[in-house]
Nucleic acid binder design. Structure first.
Ligand SMILES: [Zn+2]
Ligand SMILES: [Zn+2]
Ligand SMILES: [Zn+2]
Ligand SMILES: [Zn+2]
Lengths: 145, 145
DNA sequence: TGTTGACCTGAGAGTAAGGCTCAGGTTTAT
DNA sequence: ATAAACCTGAGCCTTACTCTCAGGTCAACA
């Protein structure tokens, strides 16, 4: 199996496989012509990497896990340990994305009723600067333009 | 105002301000000693940048917007146009994060009842490889270990 | 006046996970 | 023989910073 063949068979880009080879996650044999030769174990390894990526592990996590397995240890304790901070981070990112989408949607909605602002030196763009879109606008010098 | 003073007054890191200077988003005057001098307009500019970032614009988007405003044009049309793909991308990322967190939580939950796997040559880690955690496991050669 | 310590500068590298490009080697078919 | 198609490693690009570094500046104190 050459890079592109493996890539097709596992639904990843050849660039991704090259990247894994580069960082040492995959170690294919080299044929006499210099071409990479991927056999069964490498293919299973790639499948494993993709599954682990799908569960939020980083490539470095996966390195650690694979190294455990290669030393004949059960990687499970490492796996159970590594997923905790990843899950925590994923939850945080999820919340951040929820908040962001909400802010963006509120902004777009309120912009429908706002006219384009004209440059006047004391602001840059009122669509953006007047984005108290999460809190209710406290009545102040809002009648700016 | 020097970098650290501006940083404190606007709640960003000095490194961030340096970064903005480096990419041209901020163009402070230089004092005779070579130090940056941030005055009112630069401070408002920074505030604007932060608000735009909070709405999901990229630094490049913000460059474009600021350049509009500097040319005396109203940046609003650009703003309305630029936010669309950003919102789209944010929604996609949000969905991806929701799916990821769900997969991770399902995995962690099911792992509670799974024992650590022992290396046996035909798998790497069953916690990860047996992650049909989204679909129901179709009964097959599941009695592997 | 000398020196210390705090602050400042630009440049450069690092981050995660690949994507893209390049020059050059190989294979296959004409 | 030669051209098309494929392969290789190396290196730079992406985002929005963050960190590090060598060297310049400044205030205070002896
Ligand atoms: Zn105005
Ligand atoms: Zn505007
Ligand atoms: Zn087994
Ligand atoms: Zn395991």
């Amino acid at each position: 199996m050459k890079v592109h063949e493996l890539a097709r068979s596992e639904q990843v880009s050849a660039a991704t496989i090259r990247h894994y080879v580069r960082v040492g996650l995959l170690q294919p044999r080299k044929g006499s012509n210099g071409y990479h030769v991927f056999a069964e174990p490498e293919q299973r390894r790639l499948r494993f990497i993709r599954q682990a990526r799908g569960l939020g592990f980083t490539l470095e996590d996966i390195q650690t896990i694979l190294q455990d397995a290669e030393k004949g240890q059960s990687p499970c304790p490492t796996v159970r340990q590594l997923i905790e901070p990843r899950l925590q981070q994923a939850r945080e990112k999820l919340e951040a994305m929820q908040a962001l989408v909400e802010r963006m949607e509120n902004a777009v909605a309120s912009w429908q009723e706002q006219p384009d602002c004209q440059p006047c030196g004391d602001h840059i763009c009122l669509l953006i600067e007047g984005s108290d879109h999460t809190e209710q606008n406290r009545g102040g010098d809002a009648s700016h333009e």
